[in-house]
Design a protein around this nucleic acid. Structure first.
Length: 423
DNA sequence: TCTGGGGTCCTAGGACCC
DNA sequence: TCTGGGGTCCTAGGACCC
């Protein structure tokens, strides 16, 4: 049996690269994409990284730097990014029978049994570049943790031409790389664990690879043990091809501070419609509804209020009407007058599929709220005519609390009215 | 003035059961 | 003065990821 080979493919600076495809003059210039509400930098071009801008840095702190270096900022255009992601994943699916889509811009492919892997990695890169215009890097190794690491190396060391293949290296050669990389770069080692590892004298990847998995499991957790074993080439994290979500969250910060219950009700209604659309798309039913509201965590302590409530449902459901009614009931329970709310959200949990779902044996749910025909018709119309064409009036009409997106680009690939025009 | 959103996994501790 | 033990389930909180 041939040794396992896992590839991790990841789009470089994904959101920025999407914007550059349709705006080639952005090439070579410092570009950032901002989070919702134009709050923080969530994607940075290499030029911006070179200026020292950190991931998640608030945009208002960057205004001076941006003026000085002509940094170009965009609001997040998730419609565009989701469509480009779908194209990339569809292409990557052609390169292996087993694919795990790990995030909007990353996927694992099982290349076990394939030969000439470094060249195969180059083929992947060139195909994605030619068919979508997006630049990707490829890391190949025996385990997922190693593949993440080799992808990181492919990105950081240009002489590798975007592909790093650990499977073609001796253990000695791998260790040379491991000694050059900070332990905090490892998948699963974050900002809390890295300093703790430093206390044990573990500075780079090689140090952790040589640590005892048993001792480290006792000092940390089973997660740490798996990381160490994976670094040594023993696979502990499986490739997961289809994974329905175990919970679905929809939340947003508001464009302005909100004080009125009626406005929170509108927002919660909208978020619940979004969440229940996602729920039905993965063909699940929710067992519980949570709703949460909070003020800004940067407020003075006495002006701060945070609360969340979870309401179990009498029986699993995917009905927008019932889920929204439940969420609004919960919202009224946790709402307190006199606070300036910055954010609200909903969470669907206890998700089951149609096979494991318990049906409404005692007729606890009002029929009008859960009519399958009604739900299907509404979804169908919204799919054809655009999301929100049919919605509950509780979402409101003004929506003055809606988030800010002042620098958004066009929906180049999903909206006939916003296609790219070439003069 | 302005500070994102959506997920997963693990552990500890409490409630409850026999 | 003595005051079990072991199991499951649930939740909150912490850590991580992109």
């Amino acid at each position: 049996m041939s040794r396992r080979a896992i590839a991790l493919i990841d789009v470089n600076n994904f959101y920025v690269s999407c914007e550059r495809i349709f705006n080639p003059h952005l090439e070579g210039k410092p570009v950032v994409v901002l989070s919702n509400n134009d709050g923080c930098a969530v994607a940075r071009s290499n030029e911006v990284k070179a200026l020292g801008v950190k991931m998640g840095q608030p945009w208002f702190q960057l205004k001076d730097l941006a003026r000085k270096h002509n940094i170009i900022a965009y609001s997040s255009n998730y419609t565009l990014y989701a469509d480009m992601s779908h194209r990339v994943m569809t292409i990557l699916n052609m390169f292996s029978p087993r694919q795990e889509i790990y995030s909007i811009d990353e996927c694992f492919l099982d290349l076990t049994g394939f030969s000439n892997l470094a060249q195969y990695g180059q083929d992947i890169r060139q195909t994605i570049k030619q068919w979508t215009g997006l630049p990707v890097c490829v890391g190949i190794a025996a385990t997922k943790t190693q593949a993440k690491l080799s992808n990181h190396i492919a990105k950081k060391f240009p002489q590798l031409d975007g592909v790093c293949d650990f499977t073609a290296m001796s253990a000695f050669e791998q260790d040379i790389w491991y000694k050059r990389i900070e332990v905090g770069e490892i998948w699963g080692i974050g900002r809390r664990l890295a300093p703790k590892l430093h206390q044990y004298g573990i500075q780079n990847v090689y140090d952790l690879k040589c640590a005892s998995p048993i001792i480290m499991r006792n000092k940390f957790s089973v997660v740490m043990e798996k990381i160490i074993r994976e670094l040594n080439g023993t696979s502990c994290i499986e490739l997961e091809e289809v994974t329905p979500k175990k919970e679905i969250v929809c939340s947003r910060s508001f464009g302005v501070r909100v004080t009125q219950l009626s406005e929170l009700e509108e927002a919660v209604s909208l978020y619940m419609r979004r969440a229940s659309e996602k729920l039905r798309r993965q063909r699940s039913y929710a067992g519980a509804v949570s709703v949460f509201i909070n003020t800004s965590r940067f407020n003075k302590p006495q002006e701060n209020y945070w609360n969340e409530t979870t309401i179990p449902l009498p029986t699993h459901t995917d009905s927008t009407i019932l889920l929204t009614k439940t969420a609004l009931w919960g919202l009224r329970r946790i709402y307190r007058r006199g606070f300036e709310y910055q954010k609200a959200g909903v969470r669907l949990s206890g998700l089951v599929n149609a096979q494991t779902r318990q049906t409404d044996l005692f007729g606890l749910l009002p029929k009008g709220y859960t009519s399958q025909e009604l739900i299907e018709v509404v979804d169908h119309i919204n799919h054809r005519m655009g999301t929100g064409t049919i919605r509950l009036t509780s979402e409101g009409m003004q929506q003055g609390w809606m988030m800010k997106r002042e620098k958004i680009s066009q929906e180049y690939t999903t909206n006939w009215d916003e296609l790219l025009c070439v003069p």
